[in-house]
């Protein structure tokens, strides 16, 4: 089953130099294990491959039902050097939430995940 991150998580992003951080938080506590299992480093690297220039780091915060991603080379040099509208990475949060996960049907039904039927 396809599950869009926007439907199961919320997020906030910020900057540190040329790195954007995106914290992704499960909308319901019982959905955190789905995030932890399926929102892998590889999925995020692939999602942002045409957007950022550097690598990605991934951290788990089960206490907050959250994952934290560091997207390196994401801000056109960052800070005052950047020419981007989003020089401080404020809306990488919702760019992340466009990501669509493939969750096995049984697992998705057991967790009560909403299905994504878009393109």
């Amino acid at each position: 089953m396809k599950v869009r991150l926007l439907d199961i998580a919320h997020a906030r992003s910020g900057d540190k130099g040329d790195t954007a951080n995106v914290g992704v938080i499960a909308l319901k506590p019982e959905w955190y294990p789905v995030l932890a299992k399926h929102l892998t480093l590889d999925r995020v690297v692939s999602h942002f491959r045409d957007v950022i220039e550097g690598g990605v780091e991934r951290y788990e915060l089960p206490n907050l039902r959250a994952l934290n991603f560091l997207l390196h080379g994401a801000l056109d040099g960052g800070g005052t050097l950047s020419l981007k509208t989003d020089a401080q990475g404020k809306v990488y949060s919702t760019a992340m939430l466009r990501l669509v996960l493939d969750v096995p049907d049984a697992e998705a039904r057991a967790a009560g995940l909403p299905a994504w039927n878009g393109k």
């Binding site: 906030r12 540190k16 951080n21 938080i25 780091e57 951290y59 039902r65 934290n68």
Partner: peptide, 16 residues
């Protein structure tokens, strides 16, 4: 809890 959680992850690096 959600409003505080969002602020906690803001500008976060290695959470450990």
């Amino acid at each position: 809890v959600p409003t505080v959680s969002e602020q906690l992850v803001y500008e976060m690096g290695d959470p450990h």
